[in-house]
Design a binder for these strands. Structure first.
Length: 795
RNA sequence: GGGAGUUUAGCUCAGUUGGUAGAGCACCUGCCUUACAAGCAGAUGGUCAUAGGUUCGAGUCCUAUAAUUCCCACCA
């Protein structure tokens, strides 16, 4: 029989059991309806933090709930191990730079590191009781996934939704690669606003401009003023001299110039920022590139060539000052778009890149966002907001190493693009040959392989295609998937790009529902982050010290979509709950040895506890169906404490003393205890899978005939009772509570015996509960009187 | 500047369609009660951010304001 519960022994034992018995495996032959979850593949970028445990637990609760309510749950687990995040991890860990190693060598190191981390990730997720089916595991760098990623590209290419373009792309000089709009993060940075004179010979006066990027002077192609700006009217159409470089540029008018900003005159350099880009296109200006792909000044910068941007800027400011062209320099902080991975300000560089067309189909993407059900629903606004603001196509080529190769060659002679055949996939153009021996356009036979790889999102945006087996029969059966789960910061990337891909590939939603989780905060104002080093616990220490069940409990205390503050108090509550479940089960089951399940004639209070259970379960399911895992648990927890404090207290008198209360009364209590505890444990098993399994295996397995509680189905308990039973039982609890109150207020022990009790004003039916009231209140005689205000009087 | 979330007890948060303000923690008072003292029974504690409005009735609906967090825009 149940002795002491020791989670340190119990949790690893059951984790091993579940894996060995494949308790969470998807059954491809089942006739049950499928519930499929597009589970986020964690990025292999370092160690897991408690935010992972938090958000993966939240979505995992849903998998367990669906499994126990009649669904064949498809819950795969993936690892996003290709791409920049993994490269950065490797560079840091092994102290190497990707571009200074042979490509294959670097790739091998990456594979090695990724493998090591994946093992570690998997171990920790299993430690946390995660119920994903690890046999449905995928790695984004695997051949199988590369094939799908490349197929996705071919499909887009065939349909004309991807194009190869020679246009300015967002560039990270630190990572030496192009990046996408979605990977930018606005950051407040210190800078200086420099007021510089551009002399105009014709007018014999100077035009003063203001700039934060004086190092771009060499790339200046013109100066803009507002057409209505009286101050500069005579400059328009004239030429001015760029200081230090002494070449002339025209002064042009454009109504997008803000008169109040700086001096009202602005130099346009190609490309200092997005506005320059817009002007260049609008006015068809020449292009002068001052910055190279490593973030150093190019030859046009003259004596500053080879300097890093920041160094060149400081030097130029000094030189401008010395030459008397700098009127003033103000210290400012301004918002700068930086690469979210490394914090480096972005540059705009012209390089041939592959782009996925986003701008032509924004309306469709918005419509699809409307069709998806978002939980919580306001998260839809983030999606809509982002899609509405997208103003660039999606650049998917990366000048990096550890990623899915772009399956393309170029004709050395005419530049014609040769894409791979689908049969060839996965393909690496650096190693493999193109599908044609001569260029279909010019007939030449030499080809240049593409060296770029895909943006990681290009691959992770096809997780539904990966999960559902794109191209197989299963794909059509399973698409759209039931549920996507992720935290709110990747709505604009993962969710958006996945919708884009599903639109282009299959013109359908990738999934019907999206469940969005929040972040874990260290306190009210600070996110838990590695850089701040403010996580009190690592996931492992938490799981080891507090137990997986308690950590999961904590994950369920937040409400959906909201950030949660790490609070040790919630861990304490979780530990109390686990302890209480153990004690209550141990106690109840001690009366149920060799229990034979026969529905007896139930006493009213036993009907009450069952009816209350059914009512609670209905509420629980309502919340779960809305993905409100926290509110659902609160409902269950509240019922459980009421079950212990009120029901068990009443029932135990009968359980102990069949000789006093009669065998029928004892059997009635036994039945209610058995059924309610069994069904309650199933529900708790969603949150606290280990302790519930422990109790189940020890006792309930022989009744349920499933090898694990996690394979059982949640049930309502049939009883023959009218709706009034709940009201009646609640009245009885109220009476008992009054008796307890009397004893407490008079500093009496609860077992103090009351000779006479008068119950006034309660309906007739309370008399049916007479025996239980007497027993739990230690009352000898009860007098019932009606026609008065409700009152319980101790005499 | 645009959008969204939040604001309820000292703390952390519930409060579904409007109908007498809830839980846990903390604090306080009792109680060794044939499961559990990591327990049990009680008590205290709130102008539901502010100001208007709709309504017989508003924490809940509407309008405005404030504080705070997040997303987007702002990069000359």
């Amino acid at each position: 029989m149940l002795d002491k519960y020791n989670f340190k022994e119990s949790e690893p034992k059951w984790q091993e059991f579940w894996q060995k018995e494949r308790v969470y495996a998807f059954d491809p032959n089942s006739t049950k309806p499928i519930f499929s979850i597009d589970n986020p593949p964690p990025t292999v970028s370092g160690h897991i933090h408690i935010g992972h445990i938090f958000s993966y637990s939240q979505s995992e609760f849903i998998a367990r709930y669906k499994r126990m309510t009649g669904f064949n749950v498809f819950y795969p687990f993936g690892f996003d191990d290709n791409g920049l995040p993994t490269e950065r991890l490797v560079e840091k860990m092994r102290d190497v730079r990707a571009h200074s190693l042979p490509r294959e060598e670097f790739r091998d190191i990456c594979l090695d590191v990724a493998k090591q981390f994946e093992e570690d990730y998997k171990r920790v997720f299993i430690m946390a009781g995660n119920s994903a089916d690890f046999e449905l595991k995928y790695n984004t760098v695997s051949d199988k996934v590369q094939k799908i990623s490349q197929k996705s590209f071919l499909d887009l290419y065939k349909k004309g939704d991807v194009y190869y373009g020679d246009k300015p792309a967002i560039w990270c000089p630190e990572c030496r690669t192009s990046i996408a709009q979605a990977e930018l993060e606005s950051k407040e940075l210190e800078s200086s606003f420099n007021y510089i004179n551009f002399e105009c010979e014709e007018l014999s006066k100077a035009l003063e401009i203001a700039t934060t990027r004086p190092e771009m002077l060499c790339a200046c192609v013109c100066v803009f003023v507002h057409p209505d700006d009286e101050r500069f009217k005579d400059f328009v159409g004239k030429e001015v001299i760029v200081p230090l470089y002494n070449f002339k540029v025209p002064v042009l008018a454009d109504e997008t110039v803000e008169k109040d900003k700086g001096t009202g005159a602005v130099m346009c350099c190609t490309f200092g920022d997005e506005t320059d880009l817009m002007w260049q296109q609008k006015h068809n200006l020449p292009i002068k590139l001052a910055i190279d792909d490593g973030g150093r000044m190019t030859a046009i910068a003259g004596k500053y060539e080879g300097m890093k941007i920041k160094v060149a800027r400081a030097e130029i400011i000094k030189d401008l000052q010395e030459s008397g062209k700098l009127n003033k320099s103000e210290q400012i902080t301004h918002a700068v778009s930086t690469h979210e991975r490394c914090g480096t300000p972005m540059e705009l560089l012209i390089k041939k890149q592959w782009f996925v067309d986003l701008l032509s189909h924004k309306e469709d993407f918005l419509k699809m966002g409307e069709k998806v059900k978002w939980y919580p629903d306001y998260m839809k606004n983030r999606y809509i907001d982002w899609v509405s603001n997208v103003d660039r196509d999606w650049c998917i080529s990366r000048q990096r190493y550890f990623g899915v190769p772009i399956p393309v060659w170029y004709c050395r002679h005419c530049g014609e693009v040769i894409v791979a055949n689908e049969e060839q996939l996965p393909v690496n153009p650096l190693v493999d040959k193109p599908p044609v021996s001569t260029c279909p356009k010019c007939g030449h036979c030499e080809f240049e392989p593409e060296t770029d790889v895909f943006d990681t999102w290009h691959t992770s945006s096809v997780t539904p295609q990966i999960n559902c087996g794109w191209g197989t029969e299963r794909y059509n059966k399973m698409m759209p998937m039931s549920l996507r789960t992720n935290a709110h910061e990747i709505i604009r990337t993962w969710d958006f790009y996945t919708i884009v891909k599903s639109f282009y590939h299959s013109n359908c939603l990738p999934w019907e529902n999206v469940m969005i989780s929040g972040f874990v905060m260290a306190d009210k104002d600070n996110k838990i982050s590695k850089s701040k080093n403010n996580a009190k616990f690592s996931p492992e220490s938490l799981l080891n010290e507090k137990s997986a069940d308690v950590t999961r409990y904590w994950s369920a205390t937040g409400s959906l979509g909201k950030d949660i503050i790490f609070s040790e108090g919630e861990f304490k509550n979780g530990a109390k709950l686990v302890n209480k479940i153990w004690n209550a089960s141990k106690f109840v089951l001690s009366f149920l040895t060799d229990y034979e399940v026969v529905e007896p004639k139930l006493l009213p209070i036993d009907k009450w506890v069952i009816a209350k259970f059914n009512q609670m379960q209905k509420n629980f399911k309502n919340y779960m169906d809305k993905y409100e895992i926290g509110l659902a648990m609160a409902e269950l927890e509240r019922y459980f404490w009421n079950f212990c404090d009120n029901y068990i207290e009443i029932a135990k008198r009968r359980l102990y003393n069949p000789q006093i209360f009669g065998q029928d009364a004892t059997d009635s209590a036994k039945y209610a205890c058995f059924m309610v505890l069994k069904e309650m444990l199933k529900m708790f098993a969603i949150y606290l899978p280990h302790i519930c399994e422990e109790i189940y295996k020890d006792y309930f397995e022989k009744y349920e005939k499933e090898i694990s509680i996690h394979k059982t189905q949640m049930q309502t308990i049939n009883i023959d009772a009218d709706d009034n039973i709940i009201k009646q039982g609640d009245d009885v609890v109220e009476i008992v509570s009054n008796i307890r109150k009397y004893k407490s207020e008079n500093n009496l022990s609860l077992k103090y015996e009351i000779e006479n009790l008068e119950i006034k004003g309660y309906p007739e039916y309370v008399k049916e509960y007479d025996g239980d009231i007497k027993a739990v209140g230690c009352v000898h005689n009860i007098i019932y009187t009606s026609n008065e205000e409700k009152e319980v009087v101790i005499k």
